[in-house]
Design a protein around this nucleic acid. Structure first.
Lengths: 194, 194
DNA sequence: AAATAATGTTAAACTAGATTAACATCTATT
DNA sequence: AATAGATGTTAATCTAGTTTAACATTATTT
């Protein structure tokens, strides 16, 4: 069982004893998904937070006109879930779908609550993870308001070069909140106008 | 000292013993600000998270063209801070300014860390508060992408009728990510076209 | 290697929302 | 009650980004 990437990740934030690692490992599930499979579907109650060992997912909202709006991409060593649905155990607003074959470690709601009690350090860790996610989300709102699509695209490229390589352009356009045609225009502007 | 609104709020989520309430009260600061005063300024390190007893604040980002972009309003029984700056103790991206005379309870960084250790329940509570804030922030990103300004305005009015009454229109426009002129147009459309 | 599906590009016509600028109303101060 | 400052409205012009539609390229399957 390939828990090492998770334990490495956790040990950057907190120090787990061998006993604590054993408890942790007893309460997690290793799971493989194929490309295009859904980890969460809009309307379902999201049953897990997931740490990605390998692969790539997109989290998106499908609107009434059947348009996909991507909120985030997740790759190795990061988390994916519909956190809103997970914490409130109510139907999900978002879909989480694999865009590559993906291996991940799942923390179910009940197991995680137990883990918080048995290893209080984990509660602190998860608080910090959510804090960071919140901060990133707030900064994104600001970027969407105060920058043009071209500026947002350049920031995205710099911040997530690996994702830019791995993911089709039309999904990046969706993440940026623009059409694929307009992203195409931006790219050709960036090439020609310098 | 007027701690009751805070204790009432906390007791909706967790049950504090009398001893715990005493510890808590020893580590918080009651503070009054006048209209227009800043609780946090962009560039400062944010020293507190603040529970509002009375009054109203706006949290905003000032861009390079000196344009204000409001991320949130906060009123009684809610929190205000630059959480990103607070948790990382790095310079704030946002300003938090009072738009009415405001009384609030401050938790400083060090006091809050101590409180987490002395009253572990508080760590859980703050995790939940941040989780909710994160979820709200994610939903806002989606709304901004998938809805028109008119739709966003109608949702805002329904969700925060009290704030809509208390706050000038041009600030609501900034919160919605549109100009005051366009909000004015939307309002007259809503009156005339039905 | 051909055929199909998935992804990406280009260009013309269109629209939501911005900008500018002039004017209107409301509130606070003297 | 008169003035100044803050807030709100209207209308004309402009622009970033959308829509539509036709075509190009790249993967994938047979």
């Amino acid at each position: 069982m390939n828990h090492k990437p998770l334990l490495d990740y956790l040990n950057e934030y907190i120090n787990l004893t061998v006993d604590e690692e054993t408890i942790l490992i007893s309460k997690i599930i290793l799971r493989n998904y194929l490309k295009d499979q859904y980890i969460v579907q809009q309307g379902d109650i999201c049953k897990s937070v997931n740490f990605i060992i390998s692969g790539c997912t997109k989290t998106f909202y499908m609107d009434l006109e059947s348009q996909e709006h991507i909120v985030m991409f997740s790759i190795e060593d990061w988390w994916t879930s519909d956190l809103g649905s997970f914490i409130t155990q109510t139907p999900a607003d978002f879909n989480v779908q694999c865009i590559e074959n993906t291996q991940l470690i799942q923390f179910t709601f009940d197991n995680l609550e137990e883990l918080y009690t048995e290893i209080p350090k984990l509660e602190r860790l998860f608080r910090k993870i959510v804090e960071r996610a919140f901060v990133a989300s707030q900064k994104r709102i600001i970027r969407n308001f105060s920058l043009t699509a071209k500026e947002r695209y350049e920031i995205f490229k710099k911040a997530h070069p690996k994702i830019e390589q791995r993911v089709p352009q039309y999904m990046i356009a969706s993440y940026l909140g623009i059409t694929k045609e307009f992203l195409s225009k931006i790219k050709s502007q960036l090439i020609h106008n310098q």
